[in-house]
Amino acid sequence: MDYRRLGRTGLRVSPLCLGTMNFGPRTSESDSHTVMDAAHEHGINFFDTANGYGSHKGETEEIVGRWFAQGGGRRDRTVLATKLYGDMTDWPNDGKLSAVNIRKACDASLQRLQTDHIDLYQMHHVDRATPWEEIWEGMSVLRQQGKVVYAGSSNFAGWHLAAAQASAAERKLVGLVSEQSLYNLLSRWVELEVLPAAEHYGLGVIPWSPLAGGLLGGVLAKQAGGVEGRGTANAAGIEENRAALEGYEAFCRELGADPADVGIAWLLTRPAVTAPIIGPRTVEQLTGSLRSLDLVLDQAALDRLDELFPAPFPNGSGPAPEAYAW
């Protein structure tokens, strides 16, 4: 496994991040444990979850926690990332990013995860009502207590990253080390300002939905073959992007590569990207994702993908982040 540094940190993580959102709702606990064991066997050490994941809130963290509790070095070999933000109950301070909820949410996640620390504690969304000085105060206390090692963000705009880092610098803090964003060939908006901001501040980008909910996983071929799945169920998405998807799947056939592997391999060439999140429901899906790490896309292939899925720069100009201005 060719490990990568997470942004500007010295932390080394696998180039694929194991997403756990399916654990509980779509994958049984036993199968989830098997998938996590297989991830370690293949060298994947970076796991991502959130306090709100599961058929009930907290379920996925509980599943991961019971896997850690089996011992065998499972926790020590895992770079554990989880998130907070969403309301966990109907009470007014059981969500968002107040200092009160940062403390409560962290303690609750630690209990569910059966661990004494979180390696990467991510804010699942920007909290427009809470000032950064309060957020960083809350995060600083957790770091001083040894409960959190690094702080990260998710679904932030470039402006939010700049504001967060400016506030952290005033307090002489490390600040954010990563940003988890929606990013794939069909959704390249983060290239306008989020990726340039991440590069500037040394943040590792962790793309979620790398295959656009299955649309980039060979959905047309699956549809033609009568294979049902998340992507084939998205009739509106298929029709909206049919021309690009037809060209994409034809190009993947020319390459002799699976469309899912091409989509992930492309992300691994992008500036600031550390590790796309894969969300396997089975061990077979997990091992299939590993093929993307051996796929090398040359410049001609990257240019062809740009033709099929153009970057969202207005008037075809660039480079980002000033692209909109001329």
Rank of each mutant, 00 (worst) to 15 (best):
Y201P: 04
L203T: 12
Q180V: 05
E228T: 09
L211N: 03
A233I: 03
A243M: 05
E246C: 04
E228F: 03
L220H: 01
L182V: 05
Q223M: 04
G214K: 07
N234P: 01
G237D: 10
L245S: 01
S181G: 03
R188W: 02
Q145W: 00
R188Q: 11
W132I: 11
L161M: 13
L192A: 09
S178L: 05
T232K: 01
A163N: 05
V177W: 01
G247V: 10
E191L: 08
V148C: 04
W189L: 07
A233G: 14
L173W: 02
E179K: 02
G247Q: 15
G217I: 06
A197C: 07
L215T: 12
Y150C: 13
W132V: 12
G204L: 06
L195R: 08
G146R: 10
P131L: 15
E134L: 11
P210T: 06
E133Y: 10
G214A: 06
A166L: 08
L245K: 02
Y121K: 15
E134I: 11
R128G: 12
R188L: 05
A164H: 01
E193I: 05
E137L: 14
A166E: 09
K172R: 13
E133K: 12
W208D: 10
L142I: 13
E179F: 03
L211E: 05
V174H: 05
S167D: 03
P196L: 02
Y121F: 15
M123H: 09
A168C: 08
D127G: 11
G237E: 09
E170V: 13
L142P: 12
W136F: 13
I135M: 15
Y201E: 11
V219G: 00
H200Q: 12
G225Y: 00
L220C: 03
V227M: 04
H160E: 10
S154V: 12
E228P: 00
G152W: 02
Y201R: 11
G247S: 11
G231W: 02
V141M: 12
A151W: 00
G152P: 04
A244Q: 12
A157W: 04
W159F: 09
G217V: 06
A224G: 04
E134C: 11
D119R: 14
H125L: 13
A233C: 02
S209A: 14
S181W: 00
G225F: 00
F156W: 10
V174Q: 15
Q145K: 15
R188A: 02
A164W: 00
E246F: 00
E246L: 12
K147N: 09
L192S: 09
Y183V: 07
A129T: 15
A168L: 04
L161E: 08
G229A: 07
S167K: 01
A233N: 12
G226Q: 07
M123V: 12
Q180E: 07
P207K: 07
H160R: 01
L203C: 08
S209C: 10
G225L: 00
G146C: 11
L142V: 13
A168V: 09
S181Q: 07
M123S: 11
G158V: 03
Q122H: 14
G175C: 01
G204V: 09
H125Q: 13
I238Q: 01
H124E: 13
V149F: 03
V219F: 01
